[in-house]
């Protein structure tokens, strides 16, 4: 693989649902590249197609048309996808919904070792889980025998991140990882994301509706509206010289501490 091969490359990528009159295009003719070790944010209002695009990158959805390459090779539609998921992993918006409520947390963390053809020995798996939990500031012994609903939202979100510390993938798709947690826990979650990025030199695709947050974390922003990427560029370019009215809208909607936002009559 040449050094400059991008991590992801999409050409005219389209994903539509339904047929005929009820056809709805969620991702419309997207063309972009994401470089290795880059943090790219997909920004837009709900329903703009950013989550479907994230699912395409995660190989959880198949493109309707167009091409999507990972490290220069098409994301295969058949064959064992586990190799892909060893490289490309995700954290989701609602950590309660992301864990199965019938199994203990520890059992579910252990399940990610399925991705390896040769599972490490029991002791090693337990050790790696413990270390990952410590890395996100959770005490391993306190989680023994616990079920998802027994923990707070912030703790659950950190568990999703612990999974990433166990798997150590090359790419992380983070789908609104801070929007369901308490505002005061957000800083913590972002800290762990940055720690992951530094430790593993990961590529991160960050999905968010908050352009301010995207500005804070990313190297590049893609602004999405109705399935299309309407603008892409560096955070400073996009936020200081927006070319799309949709970008301007997103910027106006942030509740800033420093300037007027909603005014009363």
């Amino acid at each position: 693989m040449p050094a400059d091969t991008p991590c992801f490359e999409a050409r005219n990528l389209t994903r539509a649902f339904g047929h005929g009159a009820r056809r709805k295009v969620a991702v419309d003719d997207a063309t972009f590249t994401i470089a290795e070790r880059e943090i790219v944010s997909l920004v837009g209002q709900s329903g703009c197609g950013k989550s479907v695009l994230a699912k395409l990158l995660l190989r959880l959805e198949k493109p309707s048309s167009g091409e999507l390459l990972y490290q220069g090779r098409p994301i295969a539609e058949s064959g064992d996808p586990r190799a892909y998921w060893r490289h490309v992993q995700a954290v989701f918006q609602d950590p309660y919904a992301a864990f199965n409520q019938f199994f203990t947390i520890r059992a579910q963390l252990k399940a990610c070792f399925r991705l390896f053809d040769q599972r490490p020995p029991e002791r090693e798996m337990e050790d790696r889980i413990d270390q990952a939990l410590l890395a996100v500031n959770l005490r391993p012994r306190e989680l023994d025998g616990k079920y998802p609903f027994e923990l707070s939202g912030g703790q659950m979100q950190r568990l999703l991140l612990a999974r990433i510390f166990i798997l150590r993938p090359r790419v992380l798709i983070a789908d609104e990882p801070t929007s369901m947690v308490d505002a005061c826990s957000r800083a913590g979650i972002l800290e762990y994301l940055m720690k992951l990025k530094q430790e593993l030199s990961m590529t991160i695709v960050f999905v968010t509706h908050d352009i301010g947050l995207a500005y804070y974390v990313s190297d590049r922003l893609f602004i999405l509206h109705e399935g299309r990427i309407v603008e892409q560029g560096t955070p400073d370019d996009v936020t200081q010289r927006p070319t799309s009215p949709f970008t301007r809208q997103l910027l106006d909607d942030i509740p800033s501490v420093h300037r007027p936002w909603v005014t009363r009559a």
Binding site: L58, L60, W85, F92, D94, F99, Q101, R114
Partner: peptide, 12 residues
């Protein structure tokens, strides 16, 4: 549901 998506990327 998300837990099914997570199960898929866990290799189930």
């Amino acid at each position: 549901r998300d837990h099914v998506a997570l199960a898929r990327i866990n290799g189930y």
